[in-house]
Design a binder for these strands. Sequence first.
DNA 1: GTGCATCCTG
DNA 2: CAGGATGCAC
Length: 870
Amino acid sequence: MPDHDSTTLLTRQTKRRRVDIGVKRTVGSAIFTRVRETLLDSMNQSHGPDQDGDCSLVSHGHGGTNSDGEKSNVLRKLLKRANSYEDAIMPFPGATIISQLLKNNMGKNGGSDSGFQGSGALSSAGSEIQAEDACSNSSRDSPSDCLSPGPPLPPPPSSSSFGRPLPPLSLNSHNSSQSLSLSSFDLDRLSDEHLRAKRARVENIIRGMSHSPLVRSNNSNSSNDHRGDRNSHDHSRSDCPSSLLSSPGSRGGVVSVGEVYRENKRKQRLPQQQHSFTQLVCSRQEQRHEERRQLKLQLEDMQKQLRQLQEKFYQIYDSETEEEEENGENGEADRSGEREEDGNLSEDSIRSDGLEERHRDRGRQDDLSELDPGLFLDRARALLREQALIDGEMEEDVDGREEEERNSERVMKKRGGGAGGRQLAETLKQELNCAVSQVVDTVVKGFSSPKQAVSHHHGCHSSTPAAPSSSSNSSSSCPPPFGPLPSLTPDSRFGGGALALSLNGDGSPTSNYHSTNQRLHCFGDVIVPSPLDSFGGLSGRLSGVPMPNDQTEALPLVVRKSGGGGGGENTNPSLPPPPPPPHHPSLHPSPLTASLGFSPPSFRHPFPLPLMGYPFQSPLGSHGGGAGYHPGPKDHHRSSPDSMDMTRETVSLRTKMASLGGGHLSHHHHRQSSPSQHGPESLSLSLIKSECGDLQDMADISPYSSSTIQEGLSPNHLKKAKLMFFYTRYPSSNMLKMYFSDVKFNRCITSQLIKWFSNFREFYYIQMEKFARQAINEGVTAAEELTVGRDAELFRALNMHYNKANDFEVPERFLEVAQVTLREFFNAIVAGKDADPSWKKAIYKVICKLDSEVPEVFKSPNCLQELLHD
DNA sequence: GTGCATCCTG
DNA sequence: CAGGATGCAC
């Protein structure tokens, strides 16, 4: 008794330990998180100097609020770089400059020296830089995008745990940026081609521009201007003090090349430009509004054409992704609707696409000459007129290009997928970029007023509410305009957008193709992204990783007991039988369910927990009167449906589960044990809790594997064991194995069987002691007087316990043994040996020698049937 | 250290 | 009947 408390305490402690383990884990993760935060903070600090700002990674909860600060920082950084860039470039005039820029840019990209600045290897810094490069490299990303993601919008909320938030879903700026960066390298090569093309275009444009006085002046001025070419342009053109006014023009010259940097500058400047520009151009606004409207209309037309192109493109890839196409079509339809509703958004979206830059490259020239009226108001109007004319030309050009694209597509189609697909992708990509760029340019012209442009950008960002950081540049910016995306969860969106690059890189054919997809996506086609999203984001998180983890964790819980036993063996049931299920009927259900709960639902569900219950009983189960026994596998099969038998195959339950599903359970079962009387008693379920803590057991439990050999002990097995007890009170392990050949023996099974017999003995000896004392109390003086017949109460009690149904004829030998045992107890008690705590041991020694051989019939799985019939 | 048996408890 | 704890034997 006194020990009882201690025992309880011990038990509790044990439990505590388990719990503690879990806690530790948790703590560990928490610590990890902290460490991570710390690192992030340190990183931020390190960044601080470079960025001039403190972008607290941790604080970044919202993309919006943080993004601004981050952006500013980024902008600063970028500006610095840009300045250096410009300095280097300064010497080169006109087209030469551009070419130089392009070269530099390319070289940079190619070098992959994303330039680790102060932060060093820190990912955040790297990510930023990479992001920049990516933007610069592939003009695909709109400036806004590049900026928005900006600094390291540090991933997710710092608070979140370490692993989860970052990688998988959230396309945190980091992740996205990194992924982008990675893919960017690949893209660089591709981009080179684009750059070359760009360069050629730009040079041509510049040449054309060079003729205009403005350009020349700009170039000359630019040399000294820190702010860059743009500013210089502005100054030269407009008297206005602020370089802002001219900025648009400046862009045209440099933008295409400088890409990221310039874009950054643009953003900053845009607002300023607005002011000055507004002042200067106020008079023109009205005209411009009209022009804008027209431009919008034109833009819409262009967009429609682009959609058509996209559709064609998708059709080509139908085979690959039909589903995606469907989505895309839907998305397109939605988009078109949206676009019509608000042209601004569509424009924004386009801008957001990195394509803008290219357009700017081309269009800027026009812009410079046309838009930059800032210098001379008088001339501004003239420029506007020209602009309108130019726009018209542009559109025509665009149309022509589109036609070309179509032709190319046709050709591609004829060629077929495979290699043709890639080429097609590239071609389409280029073409689309060109077309889009032109459209954008046109639009930009229309929106010459910076305010609108700026506002648009903001709108884009805001539109992407879900994307906090907007880290996923293209994705974030692009999607918003197009309604379709909404269907996707915010997370998925990100995943799709930002991840698109990385993801594509994995599976998809070529980087070009990827880029194409992205662009398409940007245009509003959800097609590509959605699949990817589901893939990387959702499925990856949910199904893939988590499940395993869960299982692992869950397993330990189950195992606990077994571990105590010392079950080295457990884990590996080297023996044929996988994990044996314990047999406790009642108990198991709960444990099973619990265990199952932990494990990934998907797998486990297949096996209904309920099954775990006792199948056995019902099937045969007639306890009833004597002959209740229906041993045999047959019965099992019958029963199996319900119960699923306990059989569990340690083996690949999962696989089986997955492949087969619940159904197969019944297949293999053979079992001898039929459901018999014990019904409820059946042990079948107990496995879970039972000693078998092994993983295998766990696995086994969940599935009802069906194999010829049962993995678990069934109620029939229990009954059989009880009948065997009439012959042997101390069966050896080998004997048990021989007589339970239909069971896969593992440590758990063995232990359980031994436990059964232990319990049998316990009951047996208790009865013996009980009746011996009773006899003594009744006045029996000589042990010889004690006899055990079939009519004896003692026998009844024993028979009731071991042969409840009384359907088995108890061997005479058992009566003899029982009588001997009773007398032993009687003598011992009379002798007063019971004073000795271990006085029973002597009796046990005697009794254990009285075991007789068990009939061969018990070796048969069907023994119960046979025995019962008899 | 492991397995087995017992005792005790639920 | 099972689980936990304990003790013993190998």
